[in-house]
Amino acid sequence: MLADQQQRSWYQRIRARHIPKAPVVRNLLLAFVVGGSLTAIGQIFMDFFLGRGAPLEKAGAYTAVVIVLLGALLTGLGIYDEIVRIGGMGAALPISGFANAVTSAALEYRREGWILGVGAKIFTIAGPVLVYGILGSIVVGIIYLVLRIPIPGGTG
């Protein structure tokens, strides 16, 4: 039996009375605390590299490398998925979350081999971010080119 429009809206009303609401305030607070803690850790590394005399741009890149490495390591140890379970987007959105998306896929599909497993599926989760991130940068680049907007620090 496939419900028609009327039966569907009748059932949606019943469902709405029973479906539990996500604890939004608690989730937001936890996301703030977990996300804030992760970025604070990043800041500690940033200050460390700056203190060692690294220029601002380089220090930022070094920090990103360290946070990605930490995200991948904690994924391998089975800890990062617990951090996201508690912190939600506060832990999924930082670059360590991106590392978790790539590493977890690599770990999961290793059993199907290096080519059809890891090679083919490492970006199953992170893929859309890469595709649309790169597409977005191309579109912005074309707009800059067409409108002849000078790029700060660019050579053209």
Binding site: P20, A22, A91, A92, S104, A105, E108, Y109, T124, I125
Partner: peptide, 17 residues
């Protein structure tokens, strides 16, 4: 999990239902 949803070590927050 890996067949219907995500890799097992991927962090995600599941809804209460």
């Amino acid at each position: 999990e890996r067949q219907y949803r995500f890799p097992t070590e991927l962090g995600n927050q599941r809804p209460p239902c």
